[in-house]
Each structure stands twice: as structure tokens, then as C-alpha cells.
């Protein structure tokens, strides 16, 4: 291992953990969802970093180039991005309904309203 060779992964990990932290430490539901997005988007950076080759070009066949970056992580992440936006949409729909029913999108307020019943 060496520092110069791994900084990309480490920054990705830092970003992931920032997202993860937002998810578990914040009580606001929209903020949680933003954190979740941050978390998964940073995982995408990790995947794409794994596929990069120094001096290579985008994986589209062309006579001028010999070396291409690995296209497989790209394909996987395309799928994962779609999964991410799908989760966001469902989460937002739930949040909207929660706001209509509880009048709040803060976890604490919601808990208090449930317990007061």
C-alpha cells in the first residue's frame, strides 16, 4: 500500500462515512434521505475508481486507442444509480405522507405524537 496509490479510495471512504453519519445522526427525514444519497453516491466513486486504468481512455472502441478502462464497474454503477433514485423517490413519497399525517418531518416530534396517543 502507499499513500499516493490509495488516496482516491480514502476520499471515497471519507465521503461515504459523511453520508452514513448524516443518516444515523440526523432526525430530519429529508436530511436522512440526502445522507443516504451521499452514502451511496460515494460508494459509486469507490467502484469507478476500481475500474480506472492509468493512461486508458473511455471504454468505447476506437482505432486510435489500445487501452480502455474497465467497463464492468460502469455497468454495475449505472444500475446502482437507478436503484438509488428509485429509493429516493419512494422515500420522498413516504415523507410527504408522513408530513400530512403528523405535521412534522422530525423524528422526535413524530415519536412524541405517536406516544401521546
Amino acid at each position: 500500500m502507499n499513500l499516493a496509490g490509495h488516496y482516491n479510495y480514502w476520499v471515497a471512504i471519507f465521503l461515504m462515512m459523511t453520508g452514513f453519519y448524516v443518516v444515523i445522526s440526523r432526525g430530519n427525514l429529508i436530511k436522512k434521505l440526502i445522507g443516504l444519497n451521499l452514502f451511496s453516491t460515494s460508494v459509486f466513486i469507490l467502484y469507478i475508481s476500481l475500474g480506472k486504468i492509468h493512461g486508458a481512455t473511455a471504454p468505447i472502441a476506437d482505432d486510435r486507442f489500445q487501452l480502455y478502462s474497465n467497463p464492468v464497474p460502469h455497468v454495475l454503477i449505472l444500475t446502482a444509480i437507478v436503484v438509488g433514485v428509485a429509493t429516493t423517490a419512494v422515500g420522498l413519497a413516504l415523507i410527504t405522507r408522513i408530513y400530512e399525517q403528523y405535521g412534522s418531518i422530525e423524528e422526535d416530534d413524530i415519536r412524541i405524537k405517536d406516544e401521546s396517543l
Binding site: 443518516v23 436522512k32 429509493t87 419512494v90 422515500g91 413516504l94 415523507i95 408522513i98 403528523y102 405517536d114
Partner: peptide, 9 residues
């Protein structure tokens, strides 16, 4: 709704 959201997260 809250149960579903918690499960989602």
C-alpha cells in the same frame, strides 16, 4: 408510514 420509512433507511 413511519415504519416503512424506518425500514427504507
Amino acid at each position: 408510514l413511519t415504519a416503512a420509512f424506518q425500514y427504507l433507511v
